[in-house]
């Protein structure tokens, strides 16, 4: 399966990266990591990309890393369609002070607009 993981630097997106690597390794999936510029993330997008590359290097798993410029949600959906990905994977949301899950705007856009299946990692 061709899997597209979107990472914007929020905590849940980095957790999703670790899980997606494990999962892709186990299932023999072809994983592409798209680093997007999440305006809600406190981390600079260059630092996010370095973090992604470091984590991949540490696991020894071979995945392509791509930078997506522009609006993260629409660019992810567009790429999934242009390059025939089977699935988009994203972090499952941050939690509020009292523990409520809050989906980010990227996840909301992708869920509503993707034509492929979307997985949110909890």
């Amino acid at each position: 399966m061709k899997v597209l993981l979107g990472v914007g630097g929020s905590e849940d997106s980095l957790r999703a990266l670790d899980r997606a690597i494990e999962r892709a390794r186990g299932a023999g999936d072809d994983l592409t990591v798209a680093v997007v510029d999440n305006p809600e993330s406190p981390v600079d997008v260059d630092d996010v990309e370095s973090e992604v590359r470091e984590r991949l290097a540490a696991t020894g798993f071979d995945a392509e890393v791509r930078r997506l410029e522009g609006d993260p949600g629409s660019r992810l959906v567009q790429l999934s369609e242009q390059e025939a990905f089977d699935r988009i994977v994203l972090g499952g949301g941050e939690t509020s002070p009292l523990g409520k899950v809050r989906l980010g705007s990227i996840a909301e856009f992708v869920i509503l607009n993707a034509s492929v299946s979307v997985t949110l990692i909890r």
Binding site: G93, T95, L98, G99, K100
Partner: peptide, 20 residues
């Protein structure tokens, strides 16, 4: 359940209640 709370399972409920 609303927006993921209360969590599922006694241990998770205890952790969550401890926090709040």
């Amino acid at each position: 359940r609303a927006q993921g709370i209360p969590p599922v399972g006694e241990e998770h409920v205890r952790d969550w209640l401890d926090t709040i």
